[in-house]
Computed example of a mutant assay.
Amino acid sequence: MSRFDGYMLRQLLVFFGFFLLVLVGVLWITRSVSLFDKLIGGGQSAMVFLEFTALSLPTLIRTVMPMAAFGAAVYATNRLSRDSEMTVMLATGASPLRLARPVLYFGMVTALMMAGLTTYLRPASIQKLGVREAEVTRDLTAQLLNEGSFMHPAQGVTFYIGRIDEDGTLNDVFLSDRRNPDQPITYTGARAFLVRDDARVSLVMVQGMAMRYEAATNALSTTLFQDFSYDITSLATTRENGRRNLRGVPTTELMRTDTRAALEADHGYSQGQITEELHERIAWVLICIAVPLLGYATLMMGGFSRFGLWPQLLTAFALLLVMEGLRGAATSVVVNQPHYWWLLYAPAALGLLLTSIFLRAAGRPLRLFLSRSRAA
């Protein structure tokens, strides 16, 4: 590796880290607001929120990594051109294809990072996140111990606690059970206690009243009680059907025929969904190589201008949007028709093809051909 290659590669890595940090931070803040409200408002601790946030980071990083690599390549190339460093290298006889070598090294580095992220870290984090979500949803005590607000632990059930004492006593309890529309029941109690017996959770209310409404006879019956036990174990929300998350399946398992058959037969996934998930993980690795090369090659198409490389910058961003649109279209096609799996690699192939065309054109500018024709 020459000194210029190392110099440009260091700049690319620095800018890549900066753009990746900014994009992940913006996306994390956007998504963490709803997650914070859901977990903290549901009675969970701040450590649970931080754990869920850490487990979601691999997915966020995978989403923004190609954009960060593209932004780093475009920004570094534009900066080298603006500071005339690229012009000096071209004047020494180095071709745009030769100067693309550090960008290729940079793309290979980001591709290795993406390979580890998509094939191991992201599936493992999604699998762990699913386990923790199931544990949190089964933690009924944390869901209900939230004073001063109406909670809905299940469809048709409303629960309210006026105040919670330091010893765990619940005051001014209200429970409305409307799961049976023909006989809705409302319970109120001056005090209540949560009692756990193995997997069973009961709400023991003291000095309260139960009101039952009979829709058939349009009658309301009221019962006063000194103490009453209500089983609330069924209010705990659980994961539906124990279905395995396809995105959390390790890549090595997705490649096995028996695992694919089990996912299709036992968990209801189609062959197109399984094929799309497997090849998409590999396609993301190739995208990390094609995207920075395309950004660099597009900017090398422009000559010196006091106004900068704005036309080339806009063209590069437009091509990035085209590649993203092709990726989205290919995903929907492969899900319905899995034998078209090769379409998932079309955006990366298109990026590499345009890169070769642009670098060839940049190495042989139009004015060179015009000067040769005039001399002839």
Rank of each mutant, 00 (worst) to 15 (best):
M8D: 03
Q11S: 11
L12D: 14
L12W: 14
F16Q: 10
F16D: 00
F16M: 08
F19H: 04
L20P: 01
V22A: 14
V24P: 01
S32E: 13
F36E: 02
D37W: 11
K38F: 08
Q44M: 07
S45C: 05
A46H: 13
M47H: 10
L50N: 00
S56E: 15
I61C: 09
I61M: 14
R62F: 00
V64Y: 02
M67A: 13
A68P: 01
A73I: 10
T77A: 07
N78S: 12
N78G: 11
R79M: 09
R82Q: 14
T87R: 02
V88K: 07
V88M: 09
A91E: 11
A91M: 12
G93F: 08
S95P: 04
L97I: 06
A100Q: 00
V103E: 03
F106C: 09
M108N: 03
M113A: 13
M113N: 01
M114D: 00
T119P: 04
R122I: 00
P123C: 02
S125D: 08
L129A: 13
D139L: 00
Q143R: 13
L144S: 07
F150K: 12
P153S: 04
A154T: 10
Q155C: 08
F159R: 00
F159H: 00
F159T: 02
I161K: 04
G162E: 10
R163N: 12
I164E: 00
D165P: 06
D165Q: 15
G168F: 09
D172V: 10
L175I: 06
S176G: 15
S176Y: 05
R178M: 12
N180A: 12
R196L: 08
R196M: 02
D198H: 14
V204I: 15
V206G: 02
M209I: 05
E214L: 13
E214M: 08
A216I: 09
T217I: 06
T223F: 08
T223W: 03
Q226A: 12
Q226E: 14
D227T: 15
F228L: 10
Y230I: 09
I232Q: 00
S234V: 13
N245F: 04
T252R: 03
L254W: 04
A262H: 10
L263H: 06
E264H: 04
D266V: 12
H267N: 00
G268W: 02
L294V: 06
S305R: 13
R306H: 11
P311D: 07
P311G: 14
Q312C: 05
L313N: 11
L313Y: 06
L314K: 11
L314P: 02
L319D: 05
L321P: 12
E324C: 03
A329Y: 04
A330S: 11
V334D: 12
L343Q: 02
A346Y: 14
A348W: 06
L350M: 13
G351I: 02
T355L: 01
F358M: 10
L359V: 04
A361K: 13
A361L: 10
R364L: 12
R364V: 01
L370T: 09
R372K: 07
A375G: 08
